[in-house]
């Protein structure tokens, strides 16, 4: 039993890491990873929503009628997203300003609905939490990694600290939208290269 919880948890970290392996939830991946801070902030917000909604969906999985399950999932997810949004506004306002519209957009993030539908509605609560936590952390790390590459090249900083010294001329392309696509493609390519061996 304990072993399978570990398995559900770890699959989100590498084997099924959402943006790179499942290629899901690309909207926030491309939009908010201008810096490490934004990426990780977004990842944590999504993780919170993912764990809470997975838990609740899994608890109610026998009560929710099959025909209206998507509507129920969305209500649950939207509730938690709004909670996160209000909380971020109240306590981490600068980060909220940077993420802006992408916080409410977690509602339509495929990962959250996807895990609710594919996993949480068929498994007991403790497994669903492990799954949500694993997926969330995998998502957070991916966003952090992408954010690190883009911030490092595009702004010459990591978490706001300059890494290259004053003579570095930032590769601004990387923090623009097309840079996100190119960067994601190259990281995917790297993941596949490593995974093949």
């Amino acid at each position: 039993m304990a072993q399978s919880i570990v398995k559900e948890f770890t699959k989100g970290l590498w084997a099924e890491v959402p943006p790179f392996r499942l290629v899901l939830g690309l909207c926030p991946v491309l939009a908010v990873t201008k810096s490490v801070e934004n990426g990780i902030g977004m990842g944590i917000a999504t993780t919170f929503v993912l764990v809470c909604s997975n838990f609740l969906v899994s608890l109610l999985r026998d009560i929710i009628p099959a025909k209206v399950r998507i509507a129920c999932f969305i209500v649950i997810i939207a509730t938690f997203v709004t909670v996160v949004e209000l909380m971020m506004q109240a306590y981490t306002y600068p980060l909220f300003l940077k993420l802006g519209i992408f916080i409410p957009l977690i509602v339509v993030n495929c990962i959250v609905l996807g895990r609710a539908e594919a996993f949480a509605s068929k498994n007991p609560p403790h497994m669903a939490i492990a799954d949500g936590l694993g997926m969330g952390i995998g998502f957070t790390l991916s966003l952090g990694a992408l954010g690190a590459v883009r911030e490092c090249l595009g702004d010459g900083t990591i978490l706001g600290n300059p890494v290259f010294g004053p003579d570095f001329q930032p590769f601004t392309f990387m923090v623009e939208a097309p840079g996100a696509f190119v960067c994601l493609g190259l990281l995917l390519c790297l993941m596949n290269l490593i995974g093949k061996k």
Binding site: L60, I63, I64, P65, V68, A71, C72, V75, I76, T79
Partner: peptide, 12 residues
């Protein structure tokens, strides 16, 4: 269906 959705919505 109606009851579950209503209760969920009210709760949220």
């Amino acid at each position: 269906m109606v009851v579950v959705l209503t209760v969920l919505s009210a709760f949220s």
